[in-house]
Write a protein that binds this DNA or RNA. Structure first.
Lengths: 149, 149
DNA sequence: ATAAATAAAGATAACTTTATCCTTTATTGT
DNA sequence: ACAATAAAGGATAAAGTTATCTTTATTTAT
């Protein structure tokens, strides 16, 4: 459904929502291990998400790292898709037709429409924080590597 | 959601379900124009789908081309995804986690589960022929190029 | 038989995505 | 100030996807 980059972005951001705060920054090493992603690549992705500082924030140096502000945690999960430039996935025609619309529907349009609506609702109504809260404490949820340390 | 190759495969196969039969083969030129796809690339894709001859069939030479048998038309749309090796898209975790499952759910698992079920149902229960039938006669459905001929 | 038509196969190229590594810059604690 | 730390930035590479072109093989019609 999404690119690897976006999958990592979603996982990393959810992890940060759970574990970080402006007082508790998380290094790329811990993040990558926790979400089971390549560290350098994940760093690049997170760096791109810090560009406008509304989603992910970061501080360099000792005790630095990545974190989410309380405001960022309240954003819909869809904000991550938008930041990654992959929001269109939720809206686009399942057959990839540019002109597909209500007035000019593709053969799958009607039936796929309701699925799209559910997808959009899920990503729009669910906040990053709400997702983070669904991670049960002590549970291996993203990678089982982090819990064996 | 799907790769370009799979989008072309879906469009081409639906088009063939509508327009072709063992008695009426369609050339790659017409197909590509109709579904608005690059001809050579589409040819490659269709060729790969003719490999086992259960989905797309083809004959070379004059009056040759691609076509679908009546049996092929009865296959679920999902057969195209399977042939393209992209069936996993319907089943996989939305966060890309290998271990995500009922017993070890990711934070989106529960809510995404129902969407996945709808997706699987749509692609499994709908036959290629049924989709083709939803194309209204004379309607521009895939590309508006073909109707201007 | 031969020529024409058309898919199949192969080689290759352009572009994108994924990924790594190294250097630079900023921050913190001493 | 200085040293250590960690993200930011840049260059590059490997792999995968998308796309094109040329040659070959097959089929049909004459």
């Amino acid at each position: 459904m999404f690119s690897k980059a976006t999958e990592y972005a979603l996982r990393a951001t959810i992890y940060l929502a759970k574990k970080s705060s402006p007082d508790k920054k998380i290094g790329i090493g811990e993040i990558a291990k926790a979400i089971d992603s390549p560290p350098s690549f994940t760093a690049k992705i997170l760096q791109s998400l810090t560009k406008d500082n509304t989603l992910v924030s970061s501080v360099r140096g000792p005790n630095g790292g990545f974190f989410l502000t309380e405001n960022a945690k309240k954003l819909p999960v869809r904000a991550i898709l938008i930041a990654m430039g992959e929001d269109e996935v939720l809206e686009k025609c399942v057959l990839g037709l540019k002109r597909c619309s209500e007035v000019q529907p593709c053969p799958m349009h009607e039936q796929y429409k309701s699925i799209k609506q559910l997808l959009i609702k899920l990503f729009t109504n669910k906040s990053i924080q709400q997702l983070a809260n669904e991670i049960k404490e002590g549970e291996v949820y993203i990678s089982n590597k982090i819990n064996h340390q």
